Amino acid sequence: MNNIAQSIIDAHGGIEQWRKFSKVRAYLTQRGALWALKGQDGVLEKTTVTVATDTQWASHSPFGTIAARSEFTGYRVALMDGAGQVLQERNEPRASFDGHALETPWDALQLAFFAGCAMWTYLNTPFVLAWDGVECEDVGEWMEHGEQWRKVRVHYADSLEVFSKAQAIYVDAENLVRRLDYDVQIAGNTAGAHYVSDYVTVSGIRFPTRRRIYPRMPDGHPMAEPLVVSIDLDHITLL
């Protein structure tokens, strides 16, 4: 990783500390306009999310009343019962979103894919910058909330399943992540501005516990409404 990635990762606890663990688990509360729009309101409003730190894997448990848990690996998504038996599964799940617009409803497996992809990326940021094939560069200053941030352009490796390969991270004077930008290609290339705050330190790693996602305008600034997704994390544990 380059010096930019190193400085951001160091501010969040450092790669050596991060690599002592293989999973992150947290209690998750999610709200916002997206879930009803997709016909999945309340399914994952309150659940526990677990993501791997050394491979692309995520799980939500319970998965509403539909399943005991979900399993996301990028190339496959599945819903499992309490005994670990597969209830539903889909290989190459991204292809199921072909032709989708923002308003297109999701089935349960599509929700599992979106939620797994999202939370894996969020909880592994910024440490994913150290992964092979992930590149980043400083593209200049950005003023927001009366503060001067740095905008860092990120390009994710082809091997990683993410919302879009080209994204951006904004960091403050302490090199803490304050915002993420991406285009959700599986929802009609919807542009999002994703704000993070309320950091806590867990086992030497700094995590934001509050996330708020708004539509992003062409000039890079967010719209005040609607609140697309809200995410609150509690009881974060490194395993």
Results as ranks from 00 to 15, higher is better:
Ala36Arg: 15
Ala36Gln: 12
Ala36His: 06
Ala36Cys: 05
Leu37Tyr: 13
Leu37Phe: 04
Lys38Leu: 14
Lys38Asn: 11
Lys38Met: 11
Lys38Ser: 15
Lys38Cys: 11
Gly39Trp: 15
Gly39Pro: 15
Gly39Tyr: 13
Gly39Cys: 13
Gln40Val: 14
Gln40Asp: 09
Asp41Lys: 10
Asp41Met: 08
Asp41Gln: 04
Gly42Glu: 15
Gly42Asn: 14
Gly42Thr: 07
Gly42Ala: 15
Gly42Cys: 12
Val43Ile: 15
Val43Tyr: 06
Leu44Trp: 02
Leu44Gly: 13
Leu44Glu: 06
Leu44Ser: 08
Glu45Pro: 01
Glu45Leu: 03
Lys46Pro: 02
Lys46Leu: 10
Lys46Thr: 09
Thr47His: 06
Thr47Gln: 08
Thr47Glu: 11
Thr47Ala: 06
Thr47Val: 11
Thr48Asp: 11
Thr48Glu: 05
Thr48Asn: 00
Val49Ile: 14
Val49Ser: 03
Thr50Lys: 05
Thr50Cys: 13
Thr50Glu: 06
Thr50Val: 11
Thr50Ala: 06
Val51Met: 00
Val51Gly: 03
Val51Tyr: 01
Val51Thr: 01
Ala52Gly: 03
Ala52Trp: 00
Ala52Arg: 02
Asp54Arg: 07
Asp54Thr: 04
Thr55Met: 12
Thr55Ala: 05
Thr55Pro: 00
Thr55Cys: 07
Gln56Ser: 02
Gln56Tyr: 01
Trp57Ile: 00
Trp57Arg: 02
Trp57Leu: 02
Trp57Asp: 02
Trp57Gln: 02
Ser59Asn: 04
Ser59Val: 08
His60Gln: 10
His60Phe: 14
His60Leu: 15
Ser61Gln: 01
Ser61Gly: 10
Pro62Gln: 07
Pro62Glu: 07
Pro62His: 05
Phe63Arg: 06
Phe63Gln: 08
Phe63Asn: 07
Phe63Cys: 01
Phe63Thr: 05
Gly64Trp: 04
Gly64Leu: 03
Gly64Pro: 04
Gly64Glu: 06
Gly64Tyr: 06
Thr65Leu: 08
Thr65Ser: 11
Ile66Gly: 06
Ile66Thr: 11
Ile66Asn: 05
Ala67Cys: 03
Ala67Phe: 06
Ala68Glu: 09
Ala68Tyr: 13
Ala68Trp: 08
Arg69Asp: 11
Ser70Gly: 14
Ser70Asp: 09
Ser70Cys: 12
Glu71Ile: 12
